[in-house]
Design a protein around this nucleic acid. Structure first.
Length: 474
RNA sequence: GGGCCGUUAGCUCAACAGGCAGAGCAGGGCACUCUUAAUGCCAAGGCUGGAGGUUCGAUUCCUCCACGGCCUACCA
């Protein structure tokens, strides 16, 4: 039957309800969550939810009704309901939202069921729900009409429940640890704190271009200058780059800064934070990940970034020829890259990253790739920084924050010298803030979407974002 | 941006090698007062994503377009 014809059937039913003097879109209904109902419960109960299935038997019928908390079977019986209400029942469809008053009983097969004494229509469906048995599979429709995905696929609901749980656990943990949650601008006059291309927007009254933030970092560190010693922000950043299973143009980041700490403290904090999450979500420290398992047991592995290259037979990672040789030894394509750091980055991604399944801290990076990090004591070409990898994904990035305004200015200037597709501007405002004195501090960023992916076993970022960006349909 | 793959009824899927496009569920009708993927019977539902081309004939082969998926690139 065509979509149009199905729609017409539903419209006819809406007319029927109206002809009975009943508004098919109801109002407030006092009810209790379905999950709270137990067999011991006596007397009248009141529930509401969506009809998921109807099994009609002439003068009686069983339905399954679902609310957010759960699902229960309900029983419509003509003897009990009388002519009028039973006729109304006959004009219900799968997908309608109703409120029910009745009492509990147990069927011959032992199933807890609500005997319906009275019911009201709260919302009449016009569309048609996907098939009850196979659910909604078309991934495109699942992303475009997430509401249908949530109605039909319990796994989808579960993923987003877990996502909320993770966010709440992070907030609990950080608040407990003396951090305060702050909100800094999403619209920046100069995009900073990361290396991505920004989205550009325009403010009419001020007649100025603004950039959706690519990271909140610089503003959060201004708060350190202001004397806020432990701050965090969990919110969206925006990067105008490609879309993939690991990238959505808007994504959620946790960034936190802790005065008088350093990257070592951030490492301890990260491990404690993520273990706090896993312990509260799973009973075990080992979780399934594809064909293998991730073991979250402390202490986590720590390796030096430099030592990764030794493993690949590179004696001097600053020697481009050594690095290129490693590519050919491993039968990897350099993809036309010439820049040392681009090559190292690619090699790391191809040869190292996929092997970092259990949580692993990679420590001490070259200064060229870390313009906002404090240098390694006695080794100005390296910085106090780590990245955390879990399940072969980069999950966190942290460093001892560079708080020397003169050094910071120099770093920004050096950055300008290096080739880049993106026009760069030195953020004088940030330098000026540092000139008022920022305490030494540790800073940490965690990609929340990726963390959720790992902890829910999803292999696309679109499965953990309620409404991922898609091209509009026609 | 590049490569490969996909798009058939509202949903889930068929249709060998180019020969009238077929089920189940949902929807409609009838029967049925303990079913749970309820059951039985009946009828309906399609411009095969869009536009061209090849062919006597195209869901099937070719070209272009749209949307999506996977891989890849940019995202230190």
């Amino acid at each position: 039957m065509s979509e149009d014809a199905l729609r017409k059937e539903k419209m006819t039913k809406i007319e029927w309800w109206k002809s009975q003097g009943i508004e098919p879109y109801g109002r407030k209904f006092i009810r209790e969550p379905i999950v709270s109902l137990t067999a011991e419960r006596k007397g009248q109960i009141s529930i509401a939810g969506r009809i998921m299935t109807i099994r009609r038997h002439g003068k009686a019928a069983f339905c399954d009704v679902m609310d957010q908390s759960g699902k229960i079977q309900i029983y419509f019986k003509k003897d009990i309901l009388g002519e009028v209400l039973f006729e109304r029942f006959r004009n219900l469809d799968v997908g309608d939202i109703i409120g029910i008053k009745g009492e509990l009983f147990t069927t011959h097969t032992g199933q807890l069921t609500v005997l319906v004494r009275d019911f009201v229509l709260l919302s009449k469906i016009i569309g048609t729900l996907p098939e009850k048995w196979h659910g909604l599979k078309d991934v495109e429709v699942r992303y475009r009409k997430r509401y249908l995905d949530l109605i039909m696929n319990p796994q989808a609901q579960k993923v987003f429940e877990t996502r909320i749980k993770i966010l709440n656990l992070i907030r609990d943990f950080l608040n407990e640890a003396g951090f305060v949650e702050v909100e800094t601008p999403m619209m920046h006059p100069i995009p900073g704190g990361a290396e991505a291309r920004p989205f550009i927007t325009h403010h009419n009254a001020l007649d100025m271009d603004l950039y959706l933030r690519i990271a909140p970092e610089l503003y959060l560190k201004k708060l350190l200058v202001g004397g806020m010693e432990r701050v965090y922000e969990i919110n969206r950043s925006f990067r105008n780059e490609g879309i993939s299973t690991l990238h959505n143009p808007e994504f959620t980041m946790l960034e936190l800064y802790s005065a008088y700490d350093d990257y070592q403290e951030m490492m301890k904090l990260t491990e404690k934070l993520i273990c706090h999450i896993t312990q509260n979500i799973f009973d075990t420290e080992e979780i399934d990940f594809g064909d293998t398992k991730i073991n979250f047991q402390s202490p986590w592995k720590k390796i030096y970034w430099q030592d990764c290259w030794k493993q690949l037979g590179i004696n001097n990672w600053r020697d481009v020829n050594d690095v290129k040789k490693a590519f050919s030894d491993l039968h990897l394509d350099t993809e036309g890259k010439q820049d040392l750091f681009e090559l190292l980055d690619l090699l790391f991604k191809r040869a190292i990253e996929p092997k970092l399944i259990d949580p692993t801290f990679v420590i001490k990076f070259p200064v060229e790739t870390s313009p906002l990090a404090k240098s390694w004591p006695g080794e100005p070409s390296m910085v106090e920084r780590f990245e955390l990898f879990i399940g072969g994904l980069e999950v966190a990035n942290a460093y001892s924050e560079l708080n020397d305004p003169l050094e910071q200015k120099k770093r920004f200037e050096q950055e300008l010298q290096r080739p880049s597709e993106r026009p760069k501007v030195i953020d004088q405002d940030y330098i000026e803030a540092l000139e008022y004195g920022m305490p030494p501090a540790g800073g940490l960023g965690i990609g929340i979407d990726r963390l959720v992916m790992i902890l829910t076993g999803c292999n696309s970022i679109r499965d953990v974002i309620l409404f991922p960006l898609l091209r509009p349909r026609q």
